[in-house]
C-alpha cells in the first residue's frame, strides 16, 4: 500500500512540467527514503534524477518498495486538473495496475480523484558516482533560462567556460556569434539574485542547447540553478524542489572528433 499526501500539490505539477518533454515513460520508485525517479531521454544523451524525500510529505506511507511505471505526458495531463493550491495524494495498492491521484481544494470544498493506468517499463538504472567538480556556478534560474533561450536563436550548441573572470556562455551559428559573461556577484538585494562561482580549475565544455532549453522547464521550481562542471563528466544542472528534494539533469558533452 502506498499513500503519499503532498500539501504543496503545485510542486508536483511543476515537477511533471519539467520532465515530460525530456522523458516519455518512467518508473517512479517509492521507498522509505522518498519518491524518486531516474530516467534517460530516448537518445541516452541526458539523464534526469528526481528525489522528493519522505519527510517533505504531510503523510508518507510506503509499506514496501514499489515501482510505478507511468507515461509522463499522461501523468502531467492528470495533474493539470489539480489546482495550484490543491493538496495532492498519490495512492496505489501493492499489486496495482493503476495509480490514483486525489486532489483536495485548500478549504476541502472540492475533492477529485483521477485513476491512471500503470505500465511495465523496462528501464536501466545507472549508478551515478559522487564527483568533485572543477567548477560550480549558482545563478538565478530565470537568468540561465534566458541565456539558453537567447543563444538557441543563434546557434545549436553552447560552450560553457568558467575562468577567474566568471562564467561565459558562447555560441556560433550561420548569422554570427554570441558571448554572455556572468560575473561572481553577491552584492544583491536578495540572495536568490546572486551569482556564485566556485572554481577549482578552469573548465570549458560544449553542450547541445536543445537539451539545456529542455532542462530550463524546471525554472518555476526554484529561484536558483546550480551548474556543476568537470572536463571528464556530464554537466549537472540542479533545481531544488522546495525543502524536500531536487531535480538533477545530467547532460553528456559534445567533444571534438
Amino acid at each position: 500500500m502506498l499513500e503519499l499526501r503532498l500539501v504543496q500539490g503545485g510542486l508536483l505539477k511543476k515537477v511533471l512540467d519539467s520532465l515530460k518533454d525530456l522523458v516519455n515513460d518512467a518508473n517512479f520508485d517509492c521507498s522509505a527514503t522518498g519518491f524518486s525517479l531516474q530516467a534517460m531521454d530516448s537518445s541516452h544523451v541526458a539523464l534526469v534524477a528526481l528525489l522528493l524525500r519522505s519527510e517533505g510529505f504531510e503523510h508518507y506511507r510506503c509499506d514496501r518498495n514499489l515501482s510505478l511505471g507511468m507515461n509522463l505526458s499522461n501523468m502531467a495531463k492528470m495533474l493539470k486538473c489539480a489546482g495550484n493550491d490543491d493538496i495532492v495524494t498519490i495512492k496505489a495498492d501493492d499489486a496495482a495496475d493503476s495509480v490514483t491521484f486525489m486532489f483536495e481544494s485548500p478549504n476541502q470544498d472540492k475533492i477529485a480523484d483521477f485513476d491512471m493506468k500503470l505500465m511495465d517499463i523496462d528501464s536501466e538504472h545507472l549508478g551515478i558516482p559522487e564527483a568533485e567538480f572543477q567548477a560550480i556556478v549558482r545563478m538565478p534560474s530565470a537568468e540561465f533560462a534566458r541565456i539558453c533561450k537567447d543563444l538557441s536563436t543563434i546557434g545549436d550548441t553552447v560552450v560553457i567556460s568558467v575562468t577567474k573572470e566568471g562564467v561565459k556562455f558562447s555560441t556560433r551559428g550561420d548569422i554570427g556569434t554570441a558571448n554572455i559573461v556572468c560575473r561572481h556577484n553577491t552584492s544583491v538585494d536578495k540572495p536568490e539574485e546572486a551569482t556564485i562561482i566556485e572554481m577549482e580549475e578552469t573548465v570549458s565544455l560544449t553542450f547541445a542547447l536543445r537539451y539545456m532549453n529542455s532542462f530550463t522547464k524546471a525554472t518555476p521550481l526554484a529561484n536558483q540553478v546550480t551548474i556543476s562542471l568537470s572536463s571528464d563528466l556530464p554537466v549537472v544542472v540542479e533545481y531544488k524542489v522546495a525543502e524536500m528534494g531536487h531535480i538533477r539533469f545530467y547532460l553528456a558533452p559534445k567533444i571534438e572528433e
Binding site: 544523451v45 549508478g127 545530467y250 571534438e256
Partner: peptide, 14 residues
C-alpha cells in the same frame, strides 16, 4: 564537427 557523447559513456548500469 563535434561528437555527442552519451550518458552511458560515463555512468554504468547498476
Amino acid at each position: 564537427p563535434c561528437l555527442q557523447r552519451r550518458i552511458l559513456d560515463y555512468f554504468n548500469e547498476n
